[in-house]
Design a binder for these strands. Sequence first.
RNA 1: GGGGCGGUAGCUCAAUUGGUUAGAGUACCGGACUGUCGAUCCGGUGGUUGCGGGUUCGAGUCCCGUCCGCCUCGCCA
Length: 625
Amino acid sequence: MIKRTHTCGELRESHISQTVALSGWVNAYRGYGGLTFIDIRDRYGLTQLVFDKEDCSAELMELASRLRNEDVIAVRGVVRLRAGAPNPKLPTGQVEVVVRELELINKTDNPPFLPDDGPAAENLANEELRLKHRYIDLRRPRMQHILGIRHKVYQTTRRYFDENGFLEVETPILYKSTPEGAREFVVPCRNVPGSFYALPQSPQLFKQILMISGCDRYMQICRCFRDEDPRNDRQAEFTQIDLEMAFVQREDIMSMMEGFIRRLWKDIANTDIPPITRIGYREAMERYGIDRPDTRYGLEITDISEIARKTDFRVFQDALAQHPDARPYFSKKGVVKAIRVPGGAEKLTRKITDGYSEFVKTFGAGGVPTVKVVSGGAGASPAGLAFETGIAKFLEPVKAELVAALGLEPGDTVLFAADTYAVATKALGELRQKVARDIGLLPKPGCEGGPWNFLWVVDFPMFERNKDSGKWVALHHPFTAPREDQQDAFVAADLSSDDETIESIVSAGYDIVLNGQEIAGGSVRIHNRDVQAKVFQLLGMTPEQAREKFSFLLEALSYGAPPHAGIAFGLDRLIMNFVGAESIRDVIAFPKTMIGQDLMTRAPSGVTEAQLKELHLVSTAAPQG
RNA sequence: GGGGCGGUAGCUCAAUUGGUUAGAGUACCGGACUGUCGAUCCGGUGGUUGCGGGUUCGAGUCCCGUCCGCCUCGCCA
């Protein structure tokens, strides 16, 4: 075999007249009878090979003329300045290799598609086919680039945390089932009939145990499993950058993470990230209607309930009549909220705003009342503004107040939501993002590069009532500590009667949001056994159940647990941001489809009766696949 | 679990209200061609329209079921 001396992205004018050897895949074939060009490709780039009747034997010309896309070849030849025009699109475009020796290492069958990102790739094969033949898809320069960025993120991560004294520790994949939270993948255990492991949703408790074990600072790039329906940026099997620190407070973690983010963005995107601003959960919900606000644009939400109360608009009045005396953030309290869309009068056509009404119905809202703001005209306000279309006539009596409250200007459109606090907030929070895309406030999805708007979201409530069961659930997870100044109130609270207090307790949790996407989340943990037991109790676990599921944690907490805190990054989402990927599948080498299949290996698949028997299992489903 | 979009040649797509032999580009095969780089030109092979039923004189097209892919709501402590 001809052994390569250089890669296909390496040769320059400085190599001219050297004899070199290259190996790779045939990327393109251009034949002229007595003259044949082959582009040879490997991970590093493309180089033009030339076979010329004047220089090559008839056998070599014949062999070259039979080469086709994706054949694997190796060549030996001499580098020379291109005899024709140089190709400015290629780093190697000044030179070509005149081939003296060609080895056809492996002839390909006609490939189902070509791994081409160039102009010919306008019709990229569909994803199903690309996933089935992932080894071809991954040859694409784009995919190689993504794998490379992902590799760099691993390296920067390990380097940063190593420099800061973190210890990389692996934690079990075969773990204990703790059925709170996400649905788990379950693995039958052969040696203990009828018992099962679960795959970890995260190494949460192991990293806490490692703190109690004296590891002080832990990190791991780990696989996590959640058997929930996937999304564009979510799949059942994903990767976290997981870490935990002992003897720290919230601020210590936050500054360590800001350092990490600055390093990461410097290394990967060559960008300096300024200090990250913070917002409280309540404020985020009020202003943006979501706990992960995208701050690249305005379109903030304003509560106009008190103004709406003065109108005769039935939709407003009906909404406001719901639990009028409830606490401000009570989820079923009736409210009216509004978004001012600058320039919306022109950009948001009737067809678009009708679509918004349909859109918010998916979140339980009835529709989106709308009004346009114009200058002058009949009935113009003192500021010279008038309302038109939609619900304009109902708003006439409160025009001046609305103009002042929302800062309205001519050409604006105002979008309203009148419903319960929970529904109106959610509907406008989602609508806000849709409007931003519609009127061009955002780069197109899949664009690479900034702006990078980071945000810490802090001060989450510890608990909320599940809207169906009415049970208390932890907003983050049951191991999250109350914020330092809330600890006493939680310890003192009577769990059976003190709803107001429990709902008001704020946790020591923190999320990092990037451009409206949650990229990391963590908290200070409970390190006191009694506090942890009280949380389990509040979540409806009897002391026996708590012991059955978490005795190891409660015991560990009683044998000298240091204060500790941690966080985990969604690594796949980080990569998506760096490379401008639209789908999480594009940043995972071997991803799964929406129903969790690997189209290349055809996993999951059936197993034999013998396997089932050995595992003490009987399947009630007919075998598939 | 719910809603939406899609599945036609190896690939990317087309095919009027249901109507003749399901087309184009590309890939592939054969031929021509000495400076291309999405090479070009000439010729050719290539189809159980995802699968199974149904309606009809006639179905790629309409109906029912099913499988697969994507998007989305719920879900994701």
